[in-house]
Structures are given as C-alpha cells and as structure tokens.
Computed example of a mutant assay.
Amino acid sequence: MFNKVIGHDTIKEYFEKILLSGNMPHSYIFQGQAGVGKMTMARAIAKNLICSSQDACNTCKDCHQFEVGTHPDIITLETTKIEEVREKVVREINIKPYQSQHKIIFIPQADTLNIQSQNALLKTIEEPPSYATIILMTANVELLLPTIRSRCLIIRFNDLSDTEMKNYFSAINYNKDKEEIYIRFSSGSIGTAQKLINDESFLTLRDESINYLNRLETADMIALYKIADELVEDKLRLVEILNFWELWYRDIMIYKTNNQAILYYPDYEGLLIDICNKLTYNKISMNLKVIQKSRIDISNNVYAMFVVENLLLDLKEKK
C-alpha cells in the first residue's frame, strides 16, 4: 500500500487502518521539512482512495490515470493565488467526483498561502462534502491560521533516520564513496538528497569552501582581499559557502567538546583535529557567530564586500 514511502512506519500504520475502516477524515495537515515524504504519502493515500478496487491495484483505469496525472478527481493547487484557491478548491470541491467515489485535493507549501487565500479555504475545510479529502502540506504549520489548524488533523513527519536514508541510497545509482557525506547533508530528507546527488557543483563547492579557509590561514592582506573579491562575485554561491563554513566550525566544535555527534566532514578528519588543537573554545564559538551574522547581513542586502572583508579579518584573528 505504501511501498514507495520510505520510513514513517507509524504514519503508514495509521493510514492503513483508516483506509480499511472507510472512515477517512476530510482535512489533514502534513507537517515536515521539504522532501521528507509528505507528498509521496499523500499520493499513496489518494491512489488507494480512487482505485476501483480500493487497494491501488495498478491495473484499473483509475490507477492508470492517477499514474499519468490525468485523473479528474485528483486536484493539486499549483499556485497560492486567491483566484486559483477559489477555482481549484472552493468551486471544484463542490462538484461531485467525475468517476471515482472520492475527490482529493493536494495543497503543497500551504504555508505560502496569504491570509486572504487561507480565509477563502477555511469555509471549505469547515464544511467539506462527504466525498472530499483535503491534504495541506507545510514545513511550518505555525504560518497557517489557527482556525485552519484546529479544523485539520495534523500529521507530523519526522526527519528520516540515517538507516532509512541508507536504505534509500542503496536503491539508486550515485557515487557511493560519498554516501556518508550525502546522508549528513541531506538532513533526513530524500528530496534534499536527490538535489545534492543531481547537483554536480555540490561536492566541488564543499571542497572549495574549505580551500578558501586554508588559503586564509596563510594569507597576507593582499591575498585576503583577493579571496574577498572571489567570494563576492556570486551572492548565491557566497551564501552556500557561508553555510559550508558554519558546518565546518560546527565539526571543529564537536572535536573540541569531545561530542559523539556525526560529522559533516568525515573525509577531513585529520585537518579538523589539527585546527581543533590550534583554536580555543571561545575562538571557535566566535567564528560560528560571525559566520552566522555575516549570512544574515548578506540576506539583508548589506554591502557584500564590507561584510566579507570583515568576516575574513575576524576569522583570521588568532584570539
């Protein structure tokens, strides 16, 4: 029934019972980080509901239309504009199913709905037709109106465990020498893992970010300003490098505090230990803070060269 859903065993068990009972609640909120499996679960539920034999047989007309994306009783809200909410949800849900016994509406990224769109949705959630199931998906349920949250059953999707991520990686083709790195940077999200594997620049930029820090350690002022020039050429790349730097110093802090947490840079263990022995706890903590502040300043459109030059000077400071 849920063979495409990795992990979330408790949620699977719950929906297996609900689907068998035939007492499906009309409104759900699926909460969890992007790529953790909310839409995969929602699609599995919908396929079981619209299947002619009610078990996702994969042979009936309904299952075929579902797989190719043409089933008339499956609706996905493509944008969060008020006009589409009214057209695809408020109006469409009051039209009886065209060929199955159910009509299912998916609302991905529901937290991006503005107040007007959420209010338009509210009455539909309050009084849905008997054949309707609405599934809102969000990474931040607090951005939904309290009145919507109170009328939906909230299902929380936890991040996938390392074991579950390894099960996913074992079934796909990728550079298996980098499995531990992909698992760590995926943060329990299959969606994130897929993006990283398909992003040819990820591993390269990860290494380049550490190379910048190595260059900075021996740089004089002229070399420091050259590094700054390179970093500010691309704002998006700069933000990614700052993210890598934060995780780098996080790993150094782990060594400093004898923490047993898993590393983001296991392939740089020797260098991490060497830097850990050179830096004090306070210096590592300060580096983390200035990196975090710099990322915030960049996102707030503070002059990038000013931010980066000061950051590099702070990181190079020995104390």
Rank of each mutant, 00 (worst) to 15 (best):
N287E: 01
M253S: 03
L247N: 13
L263Q: 05
D251K: 01
P266N: 09
Q292R: 14
L288V: 06
A261P: 00
K283P: 00
P266L: 09
N258A: 05
N259A: 13
Y265R: 07
N282R: 09
D274R: 13
N282Q: 11
Y265W: 12
R250H: 11
L279S: 00
K293D: 15
L288G: 13
L279M: 11
L247I: 07
Y268V: 06
V290I: 10
L271G: 02
L279E: 10
L247Q: 13
Y281N: 06
K289Y: 08
K278N: 05
I275W: 13
E269M: 07
L247C: 10
D267M: 06
N287C: 03
Y249D: 03
D274G: 08
R250E: 01
K289Q: 14
E269H: 11
P266D: 05
S285T: 12
K278A: 04
K289T: 12
P266Y: 04
K283S: 02
M286Q: 14
Y255S: 09
K293G: 13
P266Q: 08
Y265A: 10
Y264G: 09
I284P: 07
K256F: 02
D274M: 10
K283W: 02
E269G: 01
D274S: 12
E269R: 13
P266G: 05
K293Y: 15
D267S: 06
